[in-house]
Every structure is written in C-alpha cells, then in structure tokens.
Design a binder for these strands. Structure first.
Lengths: 143, 143
DNA sequence: CTGCTTTTGATTATCATTTTCAATTTATCG
DNA sequence: CGATAAATTGAAAATGATAATCAAAAGCAG
C-alpha cells in the first residue's frame, strides 16, 4: 500500500506538471515510513539522515504538496507546530489527545460509530466523515 | 448571563490574587460581546475602539487568562491565527456539522459518553473534555 | 498617604513558516 | 545526444504571530 501512495502522488504530480526529483522521492519515503503525527522538524531530521543537503524549505514545500495530493493532512495541536498525518483509506478519526505532552492515542470503537449513524439518521443527516477528540491527561502525565 | 461570566471571572481573579483593571474589564466586555471565533487581532481592534492605548500584549495575556478561567477556549484554524471562542455552561460538544450550509446541529448521547469513559480508562487516560464532530449534509442540503 | 506587588505598554526577542533568488536539475524537442 | 525552457532547490532573508523583558504606572492592604 506504500506503493499505492507513491503511485497516487506520481499521478497527482503528472497532472500538475510537477517534476520528479530525488528530494521529493526521499521526503515521500520518509513520510510514508512514519506513524502518528510528525512535525516538519522531525521529518526534516529524518530526511537529512538519508538525503543530506535537503533544505527545510523543501520539506515544507513538499509536505504542502502531499496535502494537495490528498496523501497527508495538517493537524494543529497547541504547541505552535504544524504536524502532518497520513490520510488513509478507511481511516479512523478518534483520538485521545494528551494536553500535557501532546501525545495522541488513536482508537476505534464500533459501537460509537453505530450510534453516530443512528443519530445522523434521526436528523436526516448524511455522514461524510467525523472527528472525535477526547482531551485530558495520559497515564504518564497524570503521575 | 453576561453578568454571570463577569462574576465567574472575578471569582477566578480573586482566587489567584489578580487585580481588577480597566483594561481587563474592557477586554472582557468586548470578548463577551462577540460571537463566533475571534482572533486576537480582531479583538485588539475592537478593544482599541473603546479603550485606546491598550496594547496587544495585554490582549494576548488577558485572553490566556480567560482560558485559564474557563471562559474561553483556543480554536486553531488553518490561517495561522489563534482564535478564541466562548465556553458556555452546559454546552454540548457533539455536533452534526453540515458542510453544505454550515448549519450545526447539537446533540447529546449518554451511551457515547459512557463509551468514551471506558476507552479512556482502558488507556489510563483522564478525560477533561471532548469534541465530537460529524461532517456531512443536513436534510435540507441533501435534497 | 505609603509601600509593596501586580499590571501595563512599548519594545525586543523568538520561533515556525514563507519568500526570494541565483544556481541547479529535469523534461522536452530538435 | 545536446540545447533550451521551465521547474526545483538550498541558503538566507523576510514575515508574522506570539512571548518575554523591563521600566513606568496602577491597584491594594495597612
């Protein structure tokens, strides 16, 4: 499925007349190899490890392309850094967000999803997506 | 209910040994008179209109106090500006958001809340608040 | 009032992100 | 193959929102 995403990006790039470069390949590889929500800084450090000489500006620019291409999504936490997360097919949007350390724990709960469907139906509402965020303190930050 | 909020802030201020100042009163009045999500800049302009000479720094500082006092909440949009919205007593955090007409339908579901508690407990997480947003089309926009 | 502490406003600093621009790289076409 | 035009890059500078600094002013207890 990593290949799928690479193909998706290439298709997007071709459609926009973008050129294929070593830097973009590298950044895409690194991004696809990450989990959770990565900040630009984190990504930049990883990219430097495998492709030294790549500038931050390029990382910033390329991430915006990924968003345009539908591969990534910006996530705003409260630490002043924009983070990027993968856009997955059939992904879930349910998170426990720790306001202490900004950790994010993802979860999925089928019962909650079903209840959402019921509620939507009751209001004649057609669901396209949803986001459930629970804020609080994670186990580490409580102690 | 505006008075309630003023009282709430005064109580908070008293508890923290904060002093009552003309600037804070003015900023609180202006904030309470706004709707939607206001940016610091917008607030600053309105404050200047009624209390000229108030500095931006004071507006920033005071808004953070409102958050601490539980009157306001930071909202991060994707325009690089932090906005503040009102925290209302007995407010619901569960919304059906219509992407067609921007209508917002509030709802509450006890079962979902309980499930959230269970999930949090399972992860050793202490819930402070939550937000559930279901995006889609409302009955009107579907037709 | 007096003295002590908080608050303020102006300025400066900080930090993430964006822009600029000359140099380089890529794709295209003869 | 080259040559050419267009896109891309990296380094550095610019930007813009927010935070920190600090001397002066204001609030408050005695």
């Amino acid at each position: 499925m990593i290949q799928d995403k690479k193909n998706a990006f290439n298709k997007f790039a071709a459609g926009k007349g973008l050129r294929s470069t070593r830097q973009r390949d590298c950044i895409l590889n690194v991004f696809l190899s990450t989990h959770q929500h990565v900040s630009v800084e984190e990504l930049y450090l990883k990219v430097k490890a495998c492709c030294p000489g790549v500038g931050q500006a390029t990382v910033y620019r390329t991430l915006k392309l990924f968003v345009e291409a539908g591969l990534a999504r910006e996530v705003l936490l409260h630490d002043g850094q924009t983070r990027y997360e993968h856009v997955q097919a059939g992904e879930h949007h349910d998170h426990l967000v720790c306001t202490g350390c900004n950790a994010i724990i993802e979860f999925e709960n089928e019962t909650i999803e079903k209840l959402q469907d019921q509620i939507a139906e009751r209001h004649g509402f057609m669901i396209r997506s949803h986001k459930l965020e629970i804020y609080g303190l994670c186990a580490d930050c409580r102690s």
